[in-house]
Each structure stands twice: as C-alpha cells, then as structure tokens.
C-alpha cells in the first residue's frame, strides 16, 4: 500500500504549513471583491445590467478560471519548495522509485487544488448571494447551475494544481516555478491567441469558463468548447508539464 502511504504523507505536507491559510485568505479577498462589485459596481451606463439575469450572475460566480490560476500557483509552490527545503530527500528515501513519489505528489496537489476551487466557488457564490439583496436583483442562478459552477471550479483547480506541480518539478525553484505558472496561465495564452486566433476557445481561462456553463454572450466570447472537450483539453494542459516533470526527476541527482 505504498501509494496510500505516500499520498497520505503528501496531504499532511500540504496541511501542516501556513500555505493553505495564505491561499484561503486569497479566496476570501476575491469573494469580497465580488461582493463589493455587486454592491457598488455598475456598468458604463450607470446601471447594474451585469447582474440583471441568471446568466450574468452565473458568469460572475464562475470561479473556474480563477481556480486554475490560484491552484496553479499552489501546485507550483507546493512541489518546488520540496526541492528548496530538501524535504524531497526523505520522500525519495521512502520511495526510491521516484515516479511513485511524484505521482503521489500530483494526486495530493490535485486534491488540494480541487478543494481550493470548491472553497473559492462556494465563497464567491455566498458573497454574491449575500450582496445581491442590497440591489434590486435577487439571486437567480438555479441550484443545478450553481452546482455546475462549483464542480467546474473544483476540476479546474485540480487541473491547475497539477499543471503548477509539473512546472515545480521541472524548475525545482519556488520563484522560478511561480514565474513558470504565471507565464503558462496568464502571459502565454494571449500570445498564443494572437498567433493562432482559433486557439481562443482552447486556452485554460476559456476552457474554465466553458466548463462553468456560462453562456458565450455572458462570457463575452464568440464560441466555446463543449464540456467534454473542455475537460479533455484542460486535462491536457495540466498533464503535459506533469509528465515532463515526472520524467525529469527520475534519475536527476538530488543535491
């Protein structure tokens, strides 16, 4: 049962430092910003059209895109710090077949990323729902769609965390891994879209929005991937760096 042991150890690593609290604080801030936007924000014409329909509100609470980025940073830091602090040494001593240790890390950060996405979506939904009574609009998003938003954020969080973890395993330096995650999730996608306009539906943020079930008009995009395609392509975004990271640590000296 080496797998169970290793995943349990990795989960304990993630929950025994201040890092989860720091990320929870970020989620609270984001949800608070959403609440503030609902209470005081307006469109250009001074109206509150941006919260006037169920689709608009669903677009506002759709947390999946944020989850991808936040969990990406979470995964990158969680794995890269292992090399920085040398705590990967006891991990590789427990599991000298390193692919097992790295896979356990990926599973653990995927769980952590999913939890971040779930908590982020829940907090944002609650914040928006609690702020709406201060306006002329009530909370109109059906429960099924709220469920979809939360599920999408959880999946996007897991994918983002795996992507970040892969970068962390490749780079092995916390600053470099964070930079790599930001480059991959924020800076590279618009550049890719500029070069290949058809790619606009396939970058992580667009895929996350598609997963959340937000209507294209509300999301401000012309076309969207189907849910299944979004799941598969977002998973591919995560797995490519994860596989490279997995392969790169196999025989590399731990110094």
């Amino acid at each position: 049962m080496i797998w169970t042991r290793l995943v349990r150890a990795e989960l304990r690593k993630l929950t025994t430092t201040n890092m989860p609290w720091a990320f929870l604080a970020v989620l609270v801030v984001i949800s608070a910003i959403n609440a503030i936007a609902v209470v005081w924000g307006t469109d250009f014409d001074g109206t509150k059209t941006f919260i006037s329909t169920a689709a608009d509100q669903q677009s506002l609470i759709a947390f999946a895109s944020n989850a991808t980025l936040i969990a990406g940073l979470f995964g990158a830091i969680a794995v890269a710090r292992e090399y920085g602090h040398g705590t990967v040494i006891p991990t590789f001593l427990s599991s000298p077949r390193r692919h097992q240790a790295v896979l356990a890390q990926l599973v653990a950060v995927a769980i952590g990323g999913a939890v971040l996405g779930l908590v982020g979506a829940t907090l944002t939904t609650l914040a928006v729902a609690l702020a709406l009574p201060t306006t002329e609009f009530g909370f109109m998003v059906p429960a099924a769609d709220v469920g979809r938003v939360v599920a999408a954020a959880s999946f996007a969080g897991a994918a983002g965390a795996v992507l970040g973890a892969g970068i962390g395993a490749i780079v092995r330096n916390t600053g470099g891994a964070v930079t790599g995650a930001v480059l991959t999730l924020i800076i590279a996608p618009p550049l890719i879209v500029q070069l290949i306009s058809d790619a606009s539906s396939w970058v992580p943020s667009a895929l996350a929005v598609a997963l959340s079930g937000v209507e294209p008009e509300a999301a401000g995009v012309e076309s969207q991937a189907s849910s299944l395609a979004a799941i598969l392509v977002l998973a591919a975004w995560a797995l490519v760096p994860a596989v490279i990271g997995l392969l790169s640590v196999q025989r590399r000296d731990v110094v």
Binding site: K13, T16, T17, N18, R81, H85, G86, T87, I89, L93
Partner: peptide
Amino acid sequence: ALLESNAFHPGRS
C-alpha cells in the same frame, strides 16, 4: 539516513 541538517520545512513543527 541522516544526510542534511536542514532538510525540513521551517514552518512545520
């Protein structure tokens, strides 16, 4: 094995 005197996360007990 004991290899590194600093192979710990400083924020962990």
